[in-house]
């Protein structure tokens, strides 16, 4: 009989196999590149061009929205297409739990996002001369935010459709407002009190706060709160995704 450790390592190995498969298939698809790289770039330009803003606001903001869009850009495309091709049934009938399927799918978005986030980060350091004062905060912020939104993408992709457009439409209804309510380009302290309350419900609030702490050394909520709440969001998305995939597969 396989022990607890054996089961976990089997699940992780299968999740990694799923992620590798997605990496090979999806990373260079034009739709993914547009959604993951160009969309946040244009959002950034719309916000930043012509506005006087500190690099310590602009660069963390750009990194945060790049992660938001790139991390949640793969699964909403790949999973409906896998449903259409019936390859998703292959994952659902493998000797692994749904958690491993969700984790594997999320991992590909996560790794893609980490890679993509390096571009605005490098540009921020080189062009805007933004300095990193809290590297641990920055790393934690990038990693947790990327994982949080890749899991959110997998959660949305649970909706039983074979059309990526259906999921992208729903996802954008959430992603676009998140930019405005999460203090990405406008510091939380400058938001009206109602805005500050709504911001508490957004995972991007804690992600961008933690990333900004990497550049300023200070976090509005405190790094521990940001880390803790991002972990909570990840767990909620993971379990909700597990529940929805189970429900919709019936």
């Amino acid at each position: 009989m396989e022990g607890w450790f054996g089961q976990v390592s089997t699940e992780l190995a299968a999740a990694w196999a799923i992620a590798k498969k997605d990496i090979l298939i999806w990373y260079l698809k034009p739709g993914i590149i547009v959604s993951g790289m160009l969309f946040p770039l244009f959002m950034f330009l719309a916000f930043a061009v012509g506005r006087p803003a500190e690099p310590t606001v602009l660069v963390p903001g750009l990194v945060a929205i790049t992660i938001l869009f790139s991390a949640s850009s793969i699964e909403p495309v790949s999973i409906p297409i896998e449903r259409r091709m019936n390859t998703f049934d292959r994952l659902l009938s493998a000797p692994i739990s749904l958690h491993a399927v969700v984790l594997g799918e999320s991992l590909s978005g996560f790794l893609y996002s980490i890679g993509i986030a390096l571009v605005p980060l490098a540009a921020g350091l080189a062009v805007f001369r933004a300095g990193i004062v809290g590297p641990a905060f920055l790393v934690a912020g990038v990693v947790l935010t990327a994982f949080c939104f890749s899991t959110m993408g997998t959660l949305f992709a649970a909706y039983p459709t074979e059309s990526p457009g259906d999921i992208m439409s729903m996802l954008n209804l959430v992603r676009l407002p998140l930019i405005f309510i999460s203090g990405v380009f406008i510091p939380l302290s400058q938001l009206p009190s109602a805005g500050q309350f709504i911001a508490l419900l957004s995972p991007l609030t804690y992600g961008s706060d933690l990333i900004r702490a990497g550049f300023t050394g200070e976090a509005h909520f405190g790094p521990a709160v940001d880390v803790g709440l991002l972990l909570v969001f990840i767990l909620v998305f993971q379990f909700a995704a597990n529940l929805l995939y189970r429900r919709f597969n019936d």
């Binding site: 498969k21 090979l24 298939i25 091709m85 019936n86 390859t87 049934d89 292959r90």
Partner: peptide, 10 residues
């Protein structure tokens, strides 16, 4: 499965 569910990009 009933349909040939292979990954055609691989």
């Amino acid at each position: 499965h009933e349909t040939s569910n292979i990954y055609t990009d691989l």
